[in-house]
Amino acid sequence: MQPDLQQKQQQQGIDVAVLVSIGRHPTTGRARRAEQDARGLELALAIEAELPGTRISMLHAGSQDDSSEAALRGYLGMATGVGMGLESMTLLEQPEGSDAIPALAKHLAATSPQLVITGARAERGEGSGLLPYALAEHLGWPLVNSLASVEKVENGVVTLLQALPRGQRRRLKVRLPAIISVDEAAPAARQSAFGPARRATFAITPTTPEADSELAQWHLAPARKRPKRLKIVKAASARDRFKAAASKSEGKGGQVLTDVTPEQGAEAIYQLLKEEDVLR
């Protein structure tokens, strides 16, 4: 009886919401599916393959026009094969320059998916990478960044593999609902196919747009190319030169805190921020 029930629960799957944005090709600046968001959808599709019955919904907040539609259809084209529930994307319609966070937070609170997947940083707009954090704050859900893979979902707890620098991985167990953000550590997105992309539809949901008041005060200018600091390598052998080229420099100073209470951790962070003059 017990395993039967467990299996049933497993087969039920979970509700996954993938937040997608309109990307920008680094060379030509053309609108496209954003690299990280597409990886997020790939992650969702991997969950669906592991856990049949998982429902994926795609969510985009922004305006609708021809070029953005073509870019968004790039995500829809990843849903090849019938019955993935990806024949449609929810579009929270709001004019350019509106703040996406309130609209997304409101929609997510209303639909209450168990897992929200988003790219770490947008390719256009501010690209501050703050959206996942702001959403987590709004919704009061835990956030895990830089995800490498979702290992399993069981009884409302998801086991995640988080990517750390230099190929390290950390296994985490997080209670649902949760937000996870993906960057280049997640598996690459599959090819987008023209047929499913063309057939897919948009479910347009009007929102009460809130103008991004902070963005309005910002001064935007094209990025300048910054000079790169050259590493001076004194190496005797080819092996040393290769090692120097391949390895990232180890961080100096700092301390690793393990087995500390949240208060101690917070105190340490507070001290560091004061030392670095971030807080005064």
Binding site: H25, T27, T28, R30, R32, G77, M78, T80, G81, R190, Q191, S192, A193, F194, G195, P196
Partner: peptide
């Protein structure tokens, strides 16, 4: 390619380049 998105090996990358940069190398 059009229905299944299953162009093997570098196929998908080349097609993405053609869409984004109008040349297969992504230049």
């Amino acid at each position: 390619t059009l229905e299944r998105g299953k162009t093997p090996n570098k196929g998908a990358e080349v097609l993405d380049n053609l869409i984004a940069t109008d040349n297969p190398g992504g230049f």
